[in-house]
Amino acid sequence: MFLIPDPVGRFFHRMASPPHFYALTEKLMPWLVVLFLLLLLPGLYGGLVLAPPDYQQGDSYRIIYIHVPSAWMSLFIYMVMATAGAIGLVWRIKLAEIVAISSASIGASFTFIALVTGSLWGKPMWGTWWVWDARLTSELILLFLYLGVIGLYGAIDDKRTASKAVAILALVGVVNIPIIHYSVEWWNTLHQGPTVTKMDKPSIHVSMLVPLLLMAAAFKLYYVIAMLQRARLELLQRERNAQWVKAMLEKRA
C-alpha cells in the first residue's frame, strides 16, 4: 500500500483529475451501455424463458433473477461507497468523494428492490411477508444506513465537509456487511443459506445458474453506468466555477 508502482500511481492521478474523468467517462458510456444490454437481454431471456422451473417452487423461484443480484449489489455498492469514502478521507481526492456519494442512492435502490422482491416471494413460499430474522433485519439496517448517508450528505451545505461526515458514517456501517453475509450461517434464520457462494457442492442446477450470473454481471454494469452518470453531474455542480468546465461549455456552445 505504501509502495505503489509509478505507472499505477500516475494512472490514478490522471483518473482523479476532473476534466480527464469527465471526458473519459463520456467516451466510455456507449460501450458500457452496449455491454450492459448484451448481458441483460440473454440473462432475462435465459432466466424467465429458458431456465426450467424448480422442483419445489415451480416458476415462483424466478424472482431470484432479480432478488439475488440486487442483494449482492446492495452489499457490493456499500463496499465501494465505504472504500471510496475512506480514500476521500485519507487522500482528500475529490473524485473519490463524488464516487462515494453517487453510489449511495443506487445502493439504496438495490437494497429496497432486494427487500421488496424477497417479501413478495416470502408470502407464498414461507407464508409471511416479513419476519425479524437476522438476515432480513440486517438487510433492513443496510437500507437505513444508505438512507442515513443520503440524508446526512443533503443536510450539510459544504459538500467537502458533507463528504467527510458521510465517509465516517459509511465506514462505521461497514461492520454490517459481514453480518448480512454470514447471518444465515451464524444464527438460525428463516432465510435460506447461501446457494452460489457455497463452494463444496453446487446447490443450483447449471441451467439456472448461468442466467443468474449473467444477471449479476448486468446489474454490475448498470451500477457502473448509473454511478458514472451521477458522478459526472455531481462533478459539474461542484466544479461549476472551474476553468475546465467553462472552457468545455464554450467549446460546445
Binding site: P52, M125, G127, L190, Q192, S203, M208
Partner: peptide, 11 residues
C-alpha cells in the same frame, strides 16, 4: 412458516 432450502433444480 416454510423454511426454504438453498437447493434449486429442475424437476
Amino acid at each position: 412458516l416454510a423454511k426454504h432450502d438453498e437447493n434449486y433444480m429442475p424437476p
